[in-house]
Design a protein around this nucleic acid. Structure first.
Length: 390
DNA sequence: AAGACGTGGCA
DNA sequence: TTGCCAAGTCT
């Protein structure tokens, strides 16, 4: 709390609201402090007239939905190396896309990514539509992502509102309405600030500001180009914003997982159905996950001697916490895979679309069974080895 | 409109 | 350790 302001308030003299922030102040900060990210072209390149590649902007924005920059970076490099253009991605097999996405989470994004690539390739001649309204009709592209692509790749002067920007704007204007209801109002407050000349960099700048300066806790207001225009800062109440609706508690569900390993190391796997939780991803056989431990009703996939693994595997999803009891069995070479399942050779494990939860379950049964194959990077392998030994 | 939908990092 | 959360979208 700023002591001077606290005194002013205690004397009952509310300070007049500061002037609204200026895009120019933020952009000059951005010129000096823009983050260098794999999908960006820097301020210097933009000044030289370079344009961001819509494919790379789209891919990065979809990956970044509810996901950190740190988690996204290696996936972005993997995807752009393997599929350099939207046309390449459109012709990829969906199972390959799902497998490449495995570990990033929110797997409907991967399904929609592939569907979107095919739509762009087949119905738009391989070029993304250059405006937010048309972009938002494509699968997996909503209000935020359409605006971000339009602003960053096509210079459309549109307000781009993500979680970072919600925080910045709610502090600057002391928005008292809780999120997510406040979203429309926040967009309306931001739109007049968007400059006609550098809308893409303004979008990147507001997100950078939220990510590096106007952070959820302990914001670095001393470094902020908008601090003199920020009502929450002038009131010493930065962390009171954004106001958020109360969240519900997470229920617990339980289930059983069966990890069958053949004597040659192959694992028994199957595909999850549909569009729901982990939809279309690969899993080990198991029970449903319910509030009660009704796993007893489920038949193991093979009539063999199953051994319960000590301890449990726990995994927290967005809306529930899962406790999995894992069973394992060693299976002879000549046992065929039951209907709807297949034996996955050890060497193929990295190519399977295994979500993190399934890797945890397999690791609990047979440590090392999902270890990635040796790569060209001895450093990475050594780091992984050290982590395991710990 | 509110709930479904993953994961790993960090205080 | 436990909770919170990070560049949302879909239904």
């Amino acid at each position: 709390m700023n002591p001077t302001l606290a005194e002013a308030r205690s004397r009952g003299k509310p300070s007049p609201p500061p002037p609204p922030p200026k895009a120019a102040d933020l952009l000059s900060w951005y010129d000096r402090h823009a983050r260098a990210l794999p999908w960006r072209i820097g301020p210097a390149a933009r000044r030289a007239g370079e344009r961001a590649d819509p494919y790379r902007i789209w891919l990065s924005e979809v990956m970044l939905q509810q996901t950190t920059v740190k988690a996204v970076a290696p996936y972005f490099l993997k995807f752009t190396t393997r599929w350099p253009t939207v046309g390449d991605l459109a012709t990829a097999a969906e199972t390959d896309v799902m497998a490449a996405w495995a570990g990033l989470g929110y797997y409907s994004r991967a399904r929609n990514l592939h569907a979107c690539a095919r739509t762009v390739a087949e119905q738009h001649g391989g070029a993304f539509p250059p405006n937010a309204a048309d972009l938002s009709t494509l699968p997996g592209i909503g209000a935020y992502t359409s605006a971000a692509i339009a602003a960053i790749a096509f210079d459309e002067p549109i307000a781009v509102v993500d979680g970072n920007v919600e925080r910045v704007i709610s502090r600057v204007f002391e928005v008292g309405e809780p999120l997510p209801a406040a979203k429309a109002g926040i967009r309306a407050l931001l739109q007049p600030l968007v400059p006609q000349d550098r809308p893409g960099e303004f979008a990147e700048a507001t997100m950078d500001l939220g990510a590096t300066i106007c952070t959820p806790r302990k914001p670095a207001c001393i470094l902020c180009p908008w601090s003199a225009n920020c009502r929450a800062h002038l009131a010493g109440e930065e962390e009171a914003y954004p106001v958020k609706a109360a969240k519900k508690e997470r229920p617990v569900r339980r289930g059983l997982a069966f990890v069958a390993r053949r004597t040659d190391g192959a694992l028994l796997l199957r595909r999850r159905e549909g569009r729901g939780l982990l939809g279309g991803m690969t899993e080990v056989p198991g029970s449903d996950w319910t509030a009660r431990s009704d796993g007893e009703a489920v038949q193991p996939p093979l009539g063999v001697d199953w051994q319960e693994v000590a301890g449990t595997v726990e995994h927290t999803f967005t809306h529930f916490h899962l406790i999995l009891t894992v069973h394992r069995a060693e299976i002879d070479r000549d046992v065929p895979a039951p209907d709807g399942t297949w034996w996955s050779p050890v060497a193929d494990t990295p190519d399977e679309a295994l979500p993190s939860l399934m890797k945890k379950a397999i690791e609990a049964a047979y440590p090392g069974a999902t270890r990635p194959r040796p790569s060209q990077s001895p450093l990475a392998d050594r780091a992984a080895t050290n982590r395991k030994a710990k």
